[in-house]
Design a protein around this nucleic acid. Structure first.
Length: 627
DNA sequence: CTTAGGG
DNA sequence: CCCTAAG
């Protein structure tokens, strides 16, 4: 089957091109076009008139209310471009446009691709001017075959076709959906597998042997939904019920949005969040491919997510990340979407504003939760409005910190933070409880907030100075250690302080001491860059405040610094007026060496390394020894 | 949880 | 330093 593999990969689907998409072909080999399926199953390129008709229909947001197979139709594939392109980002042009259509051996092809044009219309006789080939991964290429209602003539050379050995055209060519079997109101949930299979047949016109209830329900729902666009049939799907149109009014005021709207049916291909979701679904369908190709294929590329959202079977739409929400909210907030009073009251920084609100006022969670409809992933999820008050995560020992913290100003600052946190969107974190608890501490009223902030700035500034001095005296080790101890107790509150400009600044990011840097470098030398948890455990056991991530970050910075400053090595030693802790040149050069080595042979350097750790020279020797 | 990388 | 996505 080797040779066939190649064929499979390059399996193509001839489709007639009438939309003049030729220009796009080079860039996007996948082209969608309008075709009409004739009564006898031939693909007929749509005429200009037909295109216009279709366009009109699309504009009207309706489709013809009949289910006759030979009616004009559009291949709705155009809606799924995003999916296709994602699934098929790289196309080999020479494959796509070989001119010769490779359908001589459709069955072989179909064995793997699961979708092939079994009965290929006489394209060449039809003289289709531009034969556009769509090829690539099966699920999407199937799409070219699929018509929403199953009205299409092209059959699927799937296992079904192969096994049943039925002429591919016989089963489906004259079939049309038989909704008469769907009496009035059907709750798919209540149906047995067998009944579901019946319904499936009624819906798709073909048997299915699938026993998975969920799957069947989904297929049926999909089939009904998409094939009819609701406006074509008397049924709609609501809450997993197939109900007659008109009856749905009594159910819920919520409108079911289905792909009758061209915008809705397609998962917004430009929405970043939709990608993962779509992928998931595709993967999921892969499990079924070969069993029931058409519907699954269709579903994998064009799904009405609203429907999914309403069904319990829905794959959960990926929740937008907090950052996404925040950033979006920020944008919308600045664009005056919220009542200004509301905005100000919770968005402004306390220090720049003389807000002296009682806590109860602020943290009253009765605050309306503003939400917006977001098209993320085409799911129409509700995204709350959030202000980005702070990013850093609260300490888990937040309350205890309060107790330990003797400083008034810190208290004040914290309380302000608490208030703001509490005023944020209701979060499910446990931290929220803590914060609320904290903020309801009695006695909190008016505090000189601005003074507090300023003091804080000074404070943190002084810390750095202090540290620098420590380093300048050569016996830094002891002092630094003491320092660490001190900071440990009093400065563990990693709190970001909004600067007047609106940015956030760490209140107490702990500067790296030379000692720590040395330890880090040592660790890297010993265990290799990347083994941060190891290094942390073994070399930084005494520094609980340094996480492995910190180590990694610091190493990254060191690398950067070392490469930058290696040429000016000498100058570094003298310059003591660095804003941040200056890294001694030897260490930097050592970092460089290590980086050099790590780049070449990573973790193999663990032998006699530790002995010569105090100077770059010894490292150099060791390294040359290895080389 | 750890690692890697972007912010 | 923070955050997040991947293992």
């Amino acid at each position: 089957m080797e040779a066939n593999e190649a064929d499979i990969e390059g399996s193509v689907f001839p489709v007639t091109n009438t939309l003049g998409a030729l220009e796009k072909e080079i860039a996007d080999p996948i082209v969608y076009q309008l075709v009409r399926v004739d009564g006898d199953g031939r693909l007929v390129p749509a005429t200009q008139d037909e295109i216009m008709v279709v366009e009109d229909l699309l504009e009207d947001d309706k489709c013809e209310p009949k289910l006759v197979p030979d009616t004009r139709q559009t291949t709705e594939s155009c809606k799924t471009e995003g999916c296709l392109m994602e699934r098929n980002p790289f196309q080999a042009p020479e494959e796509s446009f070989s001119g010769k259509l490779e359908y001589e051996n459709p069955k072989v092809v179909a064995e793997k691709s699961n979708a092939s044009v079994d009965k290929v219309p006489d394209l060449e006789k039809m003289g289709a001017p531009e034969k556009v080939t769509v090829h690539g991964s099966a699920p999407c290429s199937e799409l070219s075959n699929i018509d929403l209602s199953g009205r299409t003539e092209i059959s699927f050379n799937s296992e079904d076709a192969l096994n049943e050995d039925t002429p591919s055209t016989s089963a489906s060519s004259s079939w049309k959906p038989d909704f008469s079997k769907l009496e009035g109101k059907i709750c798919l949930d209540n149906l047995t597998v067998k009944e579901l299979q019946e319904t499936f047949k009624a819906t798709f016109g073909r048997e299915t042997s699938v026993k998975d209830k969920q799957w069947l329900k989904r297929r049926i729902t999909m089939g009904l939904t998409n094939s009819c666009d609701f406006s074509c049939t008397t049924f709609i799907i609501r809450d997993n019920l197939v109900v007659r149109k008109g009856e749905e009014q009594i159910s819920h005021p919520v409108k079911v949005r289905i792909s009758a709207d061209p915008e809705v049916g397609v998962a917004n291909s430009d929405s970043g969040g939709s990608l993962g979701d779509r992928d998931n679904r595709v993967n999921d369908d892969a499990n079924f491919s070969g069993t029931d190709v058409p519907s699954s294929a269709f579903e994998s590329c064009n799904v009405t997510k609203d429907l999914y959202a309403e069904q319990g079977t829905a794959k959960r739409v990926r929740k937008p990340t907090k950052r996404y929400i925040e950033e979006l909210s920020e944008i919308e907030e600045t664009s005056e979407k919220l009542p200004s009073s509301y905005k100000v009251s919770r968005y402004r920084f306390p220090c720049t504003e003389s807000l002296m609100r009682p806590t109860t006022n602020v943290r009253s969670n009765a605050r309306p939760l503003f939400t917006r409809q977001d098209s993320l992933g085409g799911s129409g999820v509700q995204i709350p409005f959030v202000s980005r008050i702070r990013r850093s995560r609260p300490r888990e020992n937040f309350t205890s910190l309060l107790k330990l913290q003797p400083s008034d100003m810190d208290m004040a600052t914290r309380q302000v933070r608490s208030v703001f946190d509490a005023s944020g969107p209701q979060e499910d974190d446990k931290r929220n409880n803590d914060l609320i608890k904290t903020s309801s501490t009695p006695g909190w009223t008016k505090q000189p907030l601005i003074a507090a902030c300023e003091k804080d700035e000074h404070y943190s500034g002084m810390r750095i100075v202090e540290l620098e001095n420590d380093m300048n005296e050569d016996n830094s080790d002891d002092n630094v250690e003491l320092n660490d101890g001190f900071e440990d107790n009093s400065d563990d509150n990693v709190i970001s302080v909004p600067t007047p400009k609106g940015g956030m600044r760490r209140k107490h990011h702990r500067p790296w001491t030379i000692d720590e840097v040395v330890k880090l470098v040592e660790g890297v030398a010993r265990y290799g860059a990347g083994r941060w948890s190891e290094i942390k455990r073994l070399a930084f056991a005494s520094c609980p405040y340094r996480t492995s991530v910190d180590l990694k970050d610091k190493w990254r910075n060191l690398l950067k610094a070392s490469f930058v400053q290696l040429p000016a090595e000498k100058g570094m030693l003298n310059s003591r007026k660095q804003a941040s802790v200056p890294i001694p040149a030897p260490i930097l050069s050592r970092v460089r060496e290590l980086a050099d080595m790590q780049g070449q042979f990573q973790p193999i350097l663990s032998t006699g390394k530790s002995s010569g750790h105090s100077s770059g020279r010894s490292v150099h020797e060791a390294r040359s020894g290895y080389l």
